[in-house]
């Protein structure tokens, strides 16, 4: 059976080129280390991030002299003391944290049934419809979507127009905390669904049928079988939504009406409004620490194995 060379998978050709290049560069061969060569781009990328972090760390230890707008040539913890003592920063951190947790919970609650129906529906039409409905806003982008909500929820927006028909005075639906959270949930929903769908696909339908035949009602099958088995997906989706919400900038900026700053907005102000890169760096590190602690807590509570990172699993 003769096959034309072009019928080889393209990835084989890529690997051939890589191997040839490697052999030319290092004729002796790298032995068992050769496969790790593939990690080079990732290591370079992470390395760059680390270097950036070192710079930010250095900046965070220098205070701005507002009579010369130069940073101190010595290190000091003043920025950290300021970050921990300024009530505004506490307000913003608490608002971001609480918001991220609420958004995560609500998003997961909405994403789960969405993903479940998308994965389980026997109708390919319904599945395609759900996928398109999911991806369309994905392509539109966060800022445009936020402006869309301004139009829909504004005092002269569609929602208030409809309320006006039944005699309700225009309501201020925008520029408050719920509006920001609402916008975030809508923004995060596709992330949640996309992270959950593979986890749900991995649960055989036969398992649910088995649960039913063993006497479990639909609700009990969900709570006792599907939810526990979907845990890796729920944790993964939760992590993504939590960290993205915690660090979000656009929704608080646009839907918050300037009254609902999250940490990222406070950082932006320090870097670009008051020219204080030192304090801005401090807040940035604070945000990184906060995110890392949250992820750490989740791993500690649920275990890294819930993400199927546990090598011992078959």
């Amino acid at each position: 059976m003769q096959r034309s060379p072009s019928s080889y998978p393209i990835i084989w050709r890529v690997m051939d080129v890589l191997e040839t290049t490697f052999a030319a560069v290092w004729p002796k061969g790298g032995g068992k280390f050769t496969p790790y060569l593939m990690l080079t781009p990732a290591i370079v990328l992470v390395g760059t991030l680390v270097v950036g972090l070192l710079y930010i760390g250095d900046s965070s230890l220098r205070v701005l002299d507002r009579s010369t707008f130069l940073f101190s040539d010595y290190w000091t913890l003043d920025n950290y003391i300021r970050a921990l003592s300024e009530p505004f920063i506490f307000t913003v951190v608490w608002r971001s944290l609480l918001g991220a947790v609420i958004v995560t919970i609500v998003t997961l609650m909405l994403a789960f049934p969405y993903a479940y129906i998308m994965v389980r529906t026997p109708s390919s039409f319904v599945r395609k419809f759900l996928l398109i409905a999911l991806f369309l806003p994905f392509f539109i982008g966060q800022v445009v979507r936020a402006y869309g909500w301004l139009i829909i929820l504004g005092n002269q927006g569609i929602v208030n127009d409809v309320l006006g028909l039944v005699g309700v005075e225009p309501l201020r639906l925008l520029f408050n905390y719920p509006a920001v959270l609402f916008g975030l949930v809508q923004y995060m929903l596709p992330f949640g669904v996309l992270m959950l769908a593979p986890a749900l696909t991995a649960i055989p339908e036969e398992i649910e049928a088995a649960s039913g035949s063993l006497g479990a009602s639909w609700v009990k099958t969900m709570t006792h079988i599907v939810l526990p088995m979907a845990k890796p997906g729920l944790i993964g989706a939760g992590l993504v939504v939590l960290t993205l919400s915690l660090t979000d900038f656009a929704m608080p900026a646009i839907l918050g009406g300037g009254t609902q700053d999250f940490i990222a907005n406070a950082i932006y102000d320090q870097f670009f409004r008051t020219s204080d890169q030192g304090f801005g760096s401090t807040l940035a590190l604070l945000l990184i620490a906060l995110g890392s602690i949250l992820v750490g807590i989740i791993f500690a509570v649920f275990g890294a194995g819930t993400l199927a990172l546990d090598g011992s699993r078959k």
């Binding site: 507002r66 300024e86 307000t91 913003v92 300037g258 700053d261 008051t274």
Partner: peptide, 20 residues
């Protein structure tokens, strides 16, 4: 000069009041 030396504090104070 007075503005640039103090606006960071003013902004922060204003935000503390408005977003508190």
């Amino acid at each position: 000069q007075i503005q640039v030396e103090n606006e960071s504090d003013w902004f922060s104070k204003f935000k503390t009041i408005m977003q508190g």
